[in-house]
Design a protein around this nucleic acid. Sequence first.
DNA 1: AAATAAATTAACCAAATGGTACAAAAATGC
DNA 2: GCATTTTTGTACCATTTGGTTAATTTATTT
Lengths: 229, 229
Amino acid sequence: MGDLKDDKQEDVKSWKQNPEAVRMDIIKVATEEFAANGLSGARVNEIAAKTKTSKRMIYYYFGDKEGLYQQVLIEAYRSVREGESELDLEHLDPPTALRKLVEFTFDHHRRNPDFIRLVMIENIHNADYLKQTAFMKTLNQPVIERLTALYERGLNEGVFRAAISPVTLHWHISALCFFNISNLETFNVSFGKQLFTKAGQSRLKQQVVEMVLRYTLKPEWIDQCLSER
Amino acid sequence: MGDLKDDKQEDVKSWKQNPEAVRMDIIKVATEEFAANGLSGARVNEIAAKTKTSKRMIYYYFGDKEGLYQQVLIEAYRSVREGESELDLEHLDPPTALRKLVEFTFDHHRRNPDFIRLVMIENIHNADYLKQTAFMKTLNQPVIERLTALYERGLNEGVFRAAISPVTLHWHISALCFFNISNLETFNVSFGKQLFTKAGQSRLKQQVVEMVLRYTLKPEWIDQCLSER
DNA sequence: AAATAAATTAACCAAATGGTACAAAAATGC
DNA sequence: GCATTTTTGTACCATTTGGTTAATTTATTT
């Protein structure tokens, strides 16, 4: 018993190649590490250890730490924008569509804290790594286009106020939904946890919706659109 | 010419003590470094080099890097809250006072990007270092108190809608003003610089004011209060 | 099947980093 | 004026870190 023959010849030293899977494994691990610790805080050794492969592979595929970070960023933006594109707002009346968009954004940011953290981290670095990629504008264009279409429908139907720029509208929605996650911890410490309990969050979500709608709707439509739901 | 005598005996090896000045010098330099590079990104050597004193002093006064970071945070919060307390809103009618508060917050955050960055960084660290200090709630209480007084005045005068919590109101104002600075760079890259030119910023400020007022005011007062200015 | 290219491993390295040991100069107490 | 305590400067160190060298294994081409 226990003689060491070629009983299991498979697990001795043998591996299949699967570059793409290895790449994605590294990116996934690195995403968590960078989101948790920032660019300078993350440790390549730590990332490598949590990977199915070795540190050498990281440098083989990504060149250096910053190259890896940049790919993590790109991948994060891509996957988030992909998620957003599932929304279809065209068949809803404009106020309802806007409400749905805000609610979706609010929930979406809550479900993707790692993405929020990566964006925070990238801002700390003055967006230097996003600037290098340069395809950012293309990637983000659809967001604005959808919102523009929605806003113009609302204008034509006479329910939205004029002279709001879609980019500004997007900025407002982003600000409220982003801050909710990004500053959760310091706000907690400073002002208590009321807003961040489960009940607090669903109340807050409705208030954010309300804020955006009260800003966008013509006054005469406010009461109807807010009670509606 | 050039003989080395005791010509200047004063600058050889002599110094006056001034602990508090040294401490503040370190904190000031460290604030910039931490704001620029984060906790893990900042280098103690670099901080020391930019100081009038030596690395040894940093460890003497602050124990370790994290201790220094923590003091930097505390000092930053204190000085910012101090600045805010200069506002006196009591003698203005509630809508005007609220407008002034929002405008002030917007400008204030713009003038203190280092503070914004420190808060971002602290959030990346899950507010662990603020949690340790525990006097945060005391420090931030006045902000809520002032806002509560203002809101209740507005209620009594019949110009504000009911059932808005002051903490929530503060959250909304903070979110919009904070995001403006914190996410400036990534927003720039993603959606263009329109909102962050000089003209763009003053327009945005008015829109933020408008958003808060439309949310807070009773509908019948909106037109009057927004045109007023 | 031989030669070439791509993918992977393990051991190693120089530089940078947070932190300290030691000693000397000022201030303070007696 | 002397002893003790506080404050400061210099030189140094152990560890960690990002990154590499060189060799081995699998896949692909001819």
